[in-house]
């Protein structure tokens, strides 16, 4: 029970972090059809910006400034890059963001070095909030939960209750009609792209010191965010939310349960020895497979249900 509750909380924290990344990507993908490979790079940029800013003026200004900077970067990418490439089709757009991800990783390496930077949790939040069964729960994780829940609420309210949100929703499904009604769809695209990147930047600000801030963080996070987006389904924010939480829980719980398929078979009276066919596959324990599970899920969902959990159309 103890392990269960702690893992549940950690899974939620990770899941919400994933959601902050994935929500922006899902909007960009379903609206513009662009599979943005540079999205996780914005996450990395957010973390590095926050690290630099927090060195000079502290963590709290960084919490605001770094995402805004990321948003500006996003707007610039959309206006001067993507729009130009848009004529050459979706594949070209995808490749453009792919190249961009390569460049951003290299630029980050050149600006901040190859090694992880010491981006730390602010002192104000560096204390254990409460104890469950002897395990401490850091206040910073609660803060992360609060920020991401706040963001979720803000996005949801913004999309369903404001005029801009309604126009975005309209442009999401019927871009031509929205454009015919006199809305500036390209500007909405830029807005959504910038907002999505800013959100990824914010995730980087609060996730960079929770995990490690290093140049490889984009390429480790990127594929997982894709999995979440595809799993949740295109054009569905709630699907994305469910998928994020699910992914967070699965990855956290996979580390905790030290079981393998062989253990499962043993319960049914089937003992796996070293001579059994596929003994190696059967003997691999769940924590070791943990990193593999998201991609297994991605392949399975694309093969059997390409529209994802709650998607409205195929990927």
């Amino acid at each position: 029970m103890e392990v269960f509750i702690v893992s549940l909380l950690n899974g939620l924290v990770y899941g919400m972090l994933l959601f902050m990344l994935a929500s922006g990507l899902t909007l960009i993908l379903s609206m513009m059809g662009v599979l943005n490979f540079a999205h996780a790079s914005a996450y990395m940029l957010g973390a590095y910006f926050a690290y630099t800013i927090s060195q000079y003026i502290g963590f709290w200004p960084a919490l605001v400034i770094a995402p805004l900077l990321c948003g500006l970067v996003g707007a610039a990418i959309e206006m001067w890059g993507l729009r130009r490439v848009h004529r050459n089709g979706h594949i070209a757009e995808l490749l453009f963001t792919f190249g961009l991800a390569l460049i951003i990783e290299k630029v980050v390496q050149m600006s901040w070095g190859l090694l992880p930077v010491p981006y730390r949790v602010p002192e104000l939040l560096d204390f254990p909030l409460f104890k469950i069964y002897g395990t401490q729960f850091p206040a910073y994780r609660a803060f992360m939960l609060a920020i991401s829940a706040l963001m979720f609420g803000a996005i949801w309210l913004g999309l369903t209750r404001t005029r801009v949100g309604l126009v975005i929703q309209a442009a999401l499904t019927h871009p031509d009609m929205a454009s015919a009604l006199g809305h500036n769809v390209p500007r909405i695209f830029t807005l959504v792209f910038a907002a999505g990147t800013a959100l990824a930047g914010l995730a980087g600000v609060i996730g960079g010191n929770y995990q490690v801030t290093e140049p490889a963080m984009a390429f480790t996070m990127g594929p997982i965010v894709f999995v979440v987006v595809v799993f949740g389904g295109l054009g569905s924010l709630s699907g994305c939310f469910i998928a994020s939480i699910l992914m967070g829980l699965i990855q956290t719980f996979a580390v905790v349960f030290d079981v393998s398929l062989a253990d499962l078979l043993a319960k049914f009276g089937f003992v796996v020895t070293s001579t059994t066919p596929f003994a190696e596959v059967l003997n691999v324990t769940l924590p070791r497979v943990g990193a593999l599970l998201p991609f297994l899920m991605l392949v399975l969902i694309l093969v059997f249900r390409p529209r994802g959990l709650m998607g409205t159309r195929d990927t």
Binding site: G33, P223, R288, L292, V299, L302, V303, P306, D314
Partner: peptide, 22 residues
């Protein structure tokens, strides 16, 4: 199209993770 790109990416990650595991 895009789904193919995604699924091949998933497969690639899957196999490279498996290569370290088995």
């Amino acid at each position: 199209a895009t789904a193919f790109a995604m699924i091949t990416m998933g497969l690639g990650e899957l196999v490279s993770a498996a290569a370290l595991m088995f």
